[in-house]
Design a protein around this nucleic acid. Sequence first.
DNA 1: GTGGTCTAGACCACC
DNA 2: GTGGTCTAGACCACA
Lengths: 119, 119, 119, 119
Amino acid sequence: MKWELDKSRAICPQICEQLCVGIASGELESGAKLFSVREVAVSAGVNPNTVQKSFEQLEQKGIIYSIRGSGWYVGDDTSAAKEMVTKLISEKTLEYFTQMKALGLDETEIKQYVKEWQE
Amino acid sequence: MKWELDKSRAICPQICEQLCVGIASGELESGAKLFSVREVAVSAGVNPNTVQKSFEQLEQKGIIYSIRGSGWYVGDDTSAAKEMVTKLISEKTLEYFTQMKALGLDETEIKQYVKEWQE
Amino acid sequence: MKWELDKSRAICPQICEQLCVGIASGELESGAKLFSVREVAVSAGVNPNTVQKSFEQLEQKGIIYSIRGSGWYVGDDTSAAKEMVTKLISEKTLEYFTQMKALGLDETEIKQYVKEWQE
Amino acid sequence: MKWELDKSRAICPQICEQLCVGIASGELESGAKLFSVREVAVSAGVNPNTVQKSFEQLEQKGIIYSIRGSGWYVGDDTSAAKEMVTKLISEKTLEYFTQMKALGLDETEIKQYVKEWQE
DNA sequence: GTGGTCTAGACCACC
DNA sequence: GTGGTCTAGACCACA
């Protein structure tokens, strides 16, 4: 797994999101063993505590589970991860529209702006 | 001026943004007196310190200025506010695309998603 | 009297200072009638209340006095004004040295810097 | 880092200035970790909010930067701090000359006064 | 532990 | 009345 983290944002949710994407895309299958917290921390260049927190948050949502002394594994039902991704996409888009409207653009203008967006 | 604040985000930048939009749109003209820190605080339902901080940030960018004991006024050059709004629109769109890509969508898919977006 | 006010600083002390300078220099003699609060306010482009406060502060120091319904006059003893000016010069110089030292310059360097100062 | 604050002036700019001096002098090197907001607050005898505000102002100028939950660090380019110090020296000297002139001294007299200054 | 943000309330000088 | 500044204390997410 390759990590692309935006250091100007909070790291925790980014790890959660990317892990969900990995699961939702099928890259990580049900029951697959994840890299250890320490390995992820090193490869992503972040604090192990941050990775631990991220994993715990995903565990709470039933997306992954841990076995003491063994490690972390992808949960049986990957649909939760897929729903998560869908939900995130929807939420972020809604948030984007809200913010753009606050900047004085109406829905048509936003869509036009996005359509012409490049780079 | 009417304030629409999303309490789940930081309030300061929202006040800055909406003020810039007001100036950029011409609603607030050069030299116009703004409502007092305390009035804005009441009308927006936030703490005066938060408003003060927002105003100071805009002052540092040369968009507004204050006269002690008198109030806050829109700066002579409203182009700074306009640039600010343009920059914000661009930045937020770039951020949106970045986040969507991290969620597994490519540029075409994002544009399609936005095109079909409603509500 | 001509007013040269730095609007980025507080107005009140500046009016006091310049009036003292005028008196100390002999431009304004003992017993001379000052321009009215309103006239000064207009010619200096400031709020009449500010001028009023300034005059009251100088009155408290015995430098000028007021006659109800008539106006403000320079006090009999102009030495107070002269002392005031001397004191201000000393204070401001001390303050300047203190601040420059805080910026990492020692006394010799400050004096050298001032010696070479121009514009 | 040792703090020498003049409580009769605003504290914020003093913290900014002294930090810049520390960086400009090389005492604080690029990437060096600063003491935490809370530690500085205690050692300087001021409120943590005041320190936070000072740090944020320096951040906006690109002199230092923060990592959430980790701390504040000296920016890569220390030249900004050096320029800051130079600029402050120049500004304060200009301000000093302006004020002294308003007190009736001409440039020659000011330089003479500074030359003979002691204590 | 750290920074980030906000609230609440105070005091000051100035308009 | 206004802005400017500071204190005190709280809560949050992150390292």
